[in-house]
Protein backbone atom coordinates (compact mmCIF):
# COMPACT_ATOMS: atom_id res chain seq x y z
CA UNK A 1 0.00 0.00 0.00
CA UNK A 2 2.68 2.42 -0.99
CA UNK A 3 2.24 6.12 -1.48
CA UNK A 4 -1.29 6.64 -0.22
CA UNK A 5 -1.45 10.37 0.08
CA UNK A 6 -3.43 11.23 3.14
CA UNK A 7 -5.97 13.94 3.27
CA UNK A 8 -5.33 15.96 6.37
CA UNK A 9 -2.29 15.10 8.47
CA UNK A 10 -2.89 13.02 11.51
CA UNK A 11 -2.80 14.76 14.83
CA UNK A 12 -0.33 13.34 17.29
CA UNK A 13 -0.87 14.63 20.78
CA UNK A 14 0.58 14.04 24.17
CA UNK A 15 -2.50 12.47 25.61
CA UNK A 16 -3.80 15.31 27.75
CA UNK A 17 -4.96 17.48 24.95
CA UNK A 18 -7.52 15.91 22.66
CA UNK A 19 -7.44 17.55 19.27
CA UNK A 20 -9.66 17.06 16.28
CA UNK A 21 -8.53 14.50 13.82
CA UNK A 22 -8.31 15.43 10.16
CA UNK A 23 -11.71 14.35 8.96
CA UNK A 24 -12.26 15.77 5.53
CA UNK A 25 -12.28 12.55 3.55
CA UNK A 26 -15.37 12.01 1.39
CA UNK A 27 -18.28 10.41 3.16
CA UNK A 28 -18.72 6.74 2.56
CA UNK A 29 -21.92 5.40 1.18
CA UNK A 30 -23.02 2.71 -1.18
CA UNK A 31 -21.45 -0.66 -1.47
CA UNK A 32 -18.31 -0.18 0.58
CA UNK A 33 -19.81 -1.22 3.88
CA UNK A 34 -17.51 -2.53 6.55
CA UNK A 35 -17.60 -6.16 7.62
CA UNK A 36 -20.34 -6.75 10.13
CA UNK A 37 -21.98 -3.38 9.65
CA UNK A 38 -25.53 -3.60 8.31
CA UNK A 39 -26.32 -1.27 5.40
CA UNK A 40 -27.55 2.11 6.51
CA UNK A 41 -26.01 2.01 9.96
CA UNK A 42 -23.21 4.27 11.09
CA UNK A 43 -19.98 2.92 9.76
CA UNK A 44 -18.05 2.49 12.94
CA UNK A 45 -15.92 -0.63 13.14
CA UNK A 46 -15.54 -2.16 16.55
CA UNK A 47 -12.31 -1.74 18.44
CA UNK A 48 -11.73 -5.49 18.03
CA UNK A 49 -11.81 -4.95 14.27
CA UNK A 50 -9.37 -2.05 14.61
CA UNK A 51 -7.01 -4.27 16.59
CA UNK A 52 -7.21 -6.87 13.80
CA UNK A 53 -6.29 -4.21 11.27
CA UNK A 54 -3.39 -3.06 13.41
CA UNK A 55 -2.21 -6.69 13.66
CA UNK A 56 -1.47 -6.41 9.94
CA UNK A 57 0.68 -3.27 10.19
CA UNK A 58 4.35 -4.30 10.17
CA UNK A 59 7.10 -2.64 12.15
CA UNK A 60 8.89 -0.44 9.61
CA UNK A 61 12.38 -1.58 10.62
CA UNK A 62 11.66 -5.22 11.47
CA UNK A 63 8.79 -5.94 9.07
CA UNK A 64 8.53 -9.57 10.16
CA UNK A 65 6.65 -8.49 13.29
CA UNK A 66 3.60 -6.27 13.57
CA UNK A 67 3.08 -3.21 15.72
CA UNK A 68 0.79 -5.23 17.98
CA UNK A 69 3.43 -7.97 18.29
CA UNK A 70 5.81 -5.28 19.46
CA UNK A 71 3.35 -4.23 22.16
CA UNK A 72 3.48 -0.52 21.40
CA UNK A 73 -0.24 -0.04 20.71
CA UNK A 74 -1.50 0.68 24.21
CA UNK A 75 -5.15 1.42 23.57
CA UNK A 76 -7.80 1.69 20.89
CA UNK A 77 -10.98 3.53 21.83
CA UNK A 78 -13.56 5.96 20.56
CA UNK A 79 -14.12 9.41 21.97
CA UNK A 80 -17.32 10.53 20.30
CA UNK A 81 -16.81 9.81 16.63
CA UNK A 82 -13.04 10.04 16.82
CA UNK A 83 -10.97 6.91 16.99
CA UNK A 84 -8.11 7.31 19.44
CA UNK A 85 -5.10 5.07 19.02
CA UNK A 86 -2.61 5.32 21.85
CA UNK A 87 0.97 4.48 20.98
CA UNK A 88 4.05 4.30 23.18
CA UNK A 89 7.57 4.74 21.78
CA UNK A 90 10.10 1.89 22.04
CA UNK A 91 13.12 4.15 22.55
CA UNK A 92 12.97 7.93 23.07
CA UNK A 93 14.91 8.69 19.93
CA UNK A 94 13.80 5.83 17.72
CA UNK A 95 13.55 7.35 14.24
CA UNK A 96 10.90 4.77 13.30
CA UNK A 97 8.38 6.42 15.63
CA UNK A 98 7.12 8.94 13.09
CA UNK A 99 6.99 6.28 10.37
CA UNK A 100 5.02 4.03 12.73
CA UNK A 101 2.49 6.82 13.24
CA UNK A 102 2.27 7.35 9.49
CA UNK A 103 1.81 3.62 8.87
CA UNK A 104 -0.97 3.40 11.45
CA UNK A 105 -2.72 6.33 9.87
CA UNK A 106 -2.29 4.98 6.36
CA UNK A 107 -3.65 1.58 7.34
CA UNK A 108 -6.66 2.89 9.24
CA UNK A 109 -7.57 5.49 6.64
CA UNK A 110 -7.23 2.74 4.03
CA UNK A 111 -9.95 0.90 5.97
CA UNK A 112 -12.15 3.97 5.88
CA UNK A 113 -11.44 5.53 9.28
CA UNK A 114 -11.87 9.26 8.88
CA UNK A 115 -11.82 10.71 12.37
CA UNK A 116 -8.49 9.59 13.77
CA UNK A 117 -6.17 10.78 16.47
CA UNK A 118 -2.89 9.23 17.56
CA UNK A 119 -1.82 9.84 21.12
CA UNK A 120 1.64 9.37 22.49
CA UNK A 121 1.81 7.79 25.93
CA UNK A 122 5.13 7.59 27.78
CA UNK A 123 4.03 5.94 31.00
CA UNK A 124 4.13 3.09 31.73
CA UNK A 125 7.33 2.94 29.71
CA UNK A 126 7.48 0.31 27.01
CA UNK A 127 9.00 -3.00 27.98
CA UNK A 128 9.90 -6.00 25.85
CA UNK A 129 7.66 -7.98 28.24
CA UNK A 130 4.79 -6.65 26.15
CA UNK A 131 6.02 -8.42 23.04
CA UNK A 132 3.67 -11.23 22.05
CA UNK A 133 4.78 -14.86 21.94
CA UNK A 134 4.02 -14.96 18.23
CA UNK A 135 6.18 -11.85 17.81
CA UNK A 136 9.04 -13.55 19.64
CA UNK A 137 8.68 -16.67 17.48
CA UNK A 138 8.61 -14.60 14.30
CA UNK A 139 11.73 -12.70 15.34
CA UNK A 140 13.63 -15.90 15.96
CA UNK A 141 12.53 -17.43 12.67
CA UNK A 142 13.73 -14.24 10.97
CA UNK A 143 17.19 -14.53 12.56
CA UNK A 144 16.83 -12.08 15.45
CA UNK A 145 17.16 -13.59 18.92
CA UNK A 146 14.16 -12.53 21.03
CA UNK A 147 14.65 -10.62 24.30
CA UNK A 148 15.42 -12.65 27.44
CA UNK A 149 15.21 -11.48 31.05
CA UNK A 150 18.70 -12.87 31.60
CA UNK A 151 20.02 -10.04 29.44
CA UNK A 152 21.37 -12.08 26.55
CA UNK A 153 20.08 -14.41 23.87
CA UNK A 154 19.13 -17.94 24.90
CA UNK A 155 20.59 -19.44 21.74
CA UNK A 156 21.82 -18.69 18.25
CA UNK A 157 18.77 -18.04 16.03
CA UNK A 158 20.58 -19.72 13.13
CA UNK A 159 21.90 -23.02 14.51
CA UNK A 160 20.39 -23.15 18.00
CA UNK A 161 23.74 -23.40 19.79
CA UNK A 162 23.97 -21.87 23.25
CA UNK A 163 27.61 -20.90 22.64
CA UNK A 164 27.04 -17.21 21.97
CA UNK A 165 29.00 -14.08 22.83
CA UNK A 166 28.31 -10.38 22.82
CA UNK A 167 29.97 -8.17 20.19
CA UNK A 168 28.31 -4.89 21.11
CA UNK A 169 25.55 -3.75 23.44
CA UNK A 170 24.10 -1.79 20.55
CA UNK A 171 23.14 -2.74 17.02
CA UNK A 172 21.55 -1.65 13.79
CA UNK A 173 18.50 -0.14 15.49
CA UNK A 174 18.03 1.23 19.02
CA UNK A 175 16.19 -1.94 20.04
CA UNK A 176 18.95 -4.40 19.13
CA UNK A 177 22.43 -5.52 20.17
CA UNK A 178 25.04 -7.46 18.21
CA UNK A 179 25.94 -10.99 19.20
CA UNK A 180 27.80 -13.83 17.55
CA UNK A 181 27.56 -17.60 17.67
CA UNK A 182 30.85 -19.33 18.41
CA UNK A 183 29.53 -22.65 17.04
CA UNK A 184 28.34 -21.65 13.56
CA UNK A 185 30.36 -18.38 13.67
CA UNK A 186 27.44 -16.34 12.36
CA UNK A 187 26.78 -12.88 13.81
CA UNK A 188 23.18 -12.10 14.68
CA UNK A 189 20.98 -9.39 16.13
CA UNK A 190 19.62 -9.76 19.63
CA UNK A 191 16.50 -7.84 20.58
CA UNK A 192 17.51 -5.95 23.75
CA UNK A 193 15.49 -6.75 26.86
CA UNK A 194 14.27 -3.59 28.56
Amino acid sequence: MAATRLSGGVVVTDGQRPTEGGGEAPSRRGGRGLPGVPPGETLRPSTDTIWTWLDAVPDPEIPVISLTDLGIIRDVAYEGDTLIVTVTPTYSGCPATSIINLDIETALRGHGIEQLELRRQLSPAWTTDWMTQSGRDKLEAYGIAPPQPAGGPEKCPHCGSQAVEKMSQFGSTPCKAQWRCTACLEPFDYFKCI
Binding site: D14, P89, Y91, S92, G93, C94, L122, M167, F170, P174
Partner: peptide, 23 residues
Amino acid sequence: LEEDIALANTALDLIGQTQFWLG
Protein backbone atom coordinates in the same frame (compact mmCIF):
# COMPACT_ATOMS: atom_id res chain seq x y z
CA LEU B 1 32.46 -0.16 14.02
CA GLU B 2 30.73 -1.57 17.12
CA GLU B 3 31.80 1.44 19.19
CA ASP B 4 30.71 3.79 16.45
CA ILE B 5 27.24 2.24 16.45
CA ALA B 6 27.11 2.23 20.24
CA LEU B 7 27.99 5.93 20.46
CA ALA B 8 25.48 6.85 17.76
CA ASN B 9 22.79 4.88 19.58
CA THR B 10 23.62 6.56 22.88
CA ALA B 11 23.43 9.95 21.19
CA LEU B 12 20.09 8.99 19.66
CA ASP B 13 18.61 8.10 23.04
CA LEU B 14 19.84 11.41 24.46
CA ILE B 15 18.38 13.43 21.59
CA GLY B 16 15.11 11.53 22.00
CA GLN B 17 15.01 12.40 25.69
CA THR B 18 15.77 16.00 24.75
CA GLN B 19 12.63 16.12 22.65
CA PHE B 20 10.56 15.21 25.70
CA TRP B 21 12.26 17.62 28.12
CA LEU B 22 12.44 20.58 25.76
CA GLY B 23 9.00 19.80 24.36
